[in-house]
């Protein structure tokens, strides 16, 4: 409990550091928002009036805290290009990106854990070798290229989905999930291969341990030893990796969204970057990093539940 509390406090400090960094960076470089909203031909009086209205004359730190508090209330400012609330622009996109990340994460686990166990059990065998060679190759595929390959295979050759035929979740939830399966697979595959390699290596090094020999000598079958004894130890480094992979998945979804034409956070982020629409860029970066930090914190806490040594050391 104390450990969890400590992690939550650390996360909150990190959120403040990250948001402060983002805010100051954008304030230094983005220039005067009043000019970007009214254009360079605006009269000084109008500019000043707008600056007063937007509280741009206050010190940076005051503006930062005002922005942060507003952010937590759900007020993310107004988009420069579209002149509408940033929150209305992005709120209905969050479920899209979140669904994709969650599906990729589940796929990654479903693919990697059985394969990792299987290959370690039959290490050196033909199937193990074939899987490990394939594994090494798939590991080198960037997610957007795996997306293109998946479009080619499932869209053109097998024709089981329509590339670019995105279905909104509010219209047809089943169709939405079916469409999202393919981009999720594209993100999950390269990450899953790394998890397979890690789990396989970690299980193989456990086979020589004394407790495994003891478990065997007590009459356990190989499966019994693996599932009841070894997995609990071997899975620890994999959990750390899965947490890191989830971070990459959330970020990777920005790219894969482009391959499959999915209107999620990534697409708005990219158009806003090219439009220099800073309030939107800031809001999305803060939202994504918030997701990432929460995930990291949860992984740390789950880790301490599985491995009691961690929270024990901390006391």
């Amino acid at each position: 409990m104390r450990y969890a509390l400590k992690k939550i406090v650390t996360m909150m400090i990190t959120v403040i550091v990250v948001t402060l960094f983002v805010y100051i960076a954008f304030n230094l470089i983005s220039g005067d928002p009043a000019i970007s909203m009214l254009g360079t031909n605006a009269t000084p009086e109008r500019l000043n009036a707008l600056r007063e209205e937007l509280h741009l004359n206050d010190p940076v730190i005051v503006r930062y805290f005002r922005w942060l508090i507003a952010l937590f209330k759900g007020d993310m400012g107004v988009s420069y290009s579209y002149r509408i609330d940033v929150s209305t622009m992005i709120f209905d996109k969050i479920p899209v990106t979140a669904t994709m990340a969650a599906m990729s994460f589940i796929l990654m686990i479903v693919i990697s854990i059985p394969l990792g166990i299987h290959t370690s059990k039959y290490q050196g065998g033909v199937l193990d070798r074939i899987i490990m060679i394939l594994n090494q190759i798939i590991m080198s595929i960037p997610p957007f290229f795996s997306g293109i390959l998946i479009t080619l295979i499932f869209g053109r050759i097998l024709k089981i989905f329509t590339p670019g035929g995105y279905v909104s979740y509010s219209n047809d939830f089943g169709g939405f999930l079916w469409y999202m399966f393919f981009p999720s697979l594209a993100i999950a595959l390269p990450k899953a291969t790394m998890a397979v390699k890690l789990l396989r290596g970690s299980l193989i090094s456990e086979y020589n341990m004394d407790y495994v020999r003891t478990a065997y000598s007590k009459g356990n079958t190989t499966n019994g030893v693996i599932y009841n004894h070894m997995l609990k130890n071997a899975i620890l480094p994999v959990i750390t990796f899965l947490g890191m992979a989830l971070t990459d998945i959330i970020a990777g979804s920005i790219i894969v969204e482009q391959v499959f034409g999915i209107p999620g956070l990534g697409r708005i982020l990219l158009t806003s970057i090219s439009n220099r629409d800073y309030p939107v860029v800031m809001a999305i970066i803060v939202i994504i990093s918030f997701m990432v930090l929460v995930v990291n914190m949860l992984v740390d806490i789950i880790y301490s539940l599985i491995d009691p040594r961690i929270s024990f050391e901390d006391k």
Partner: peptide, 23 residues
């Protein structure tokens, strides 16, 4: 190291996007 941890927790592609949107 605290700052490093904060940046490390940040996916590098997102960080690069942040810099690109500034530069």
């Amino acid at each position: 190291m605290r700052i490093n941890d904060a940046i490390f927790a940040f996916p590098s592609i997102l960080l690069a996007l942040l810099f690109i949107s500034l530069l």
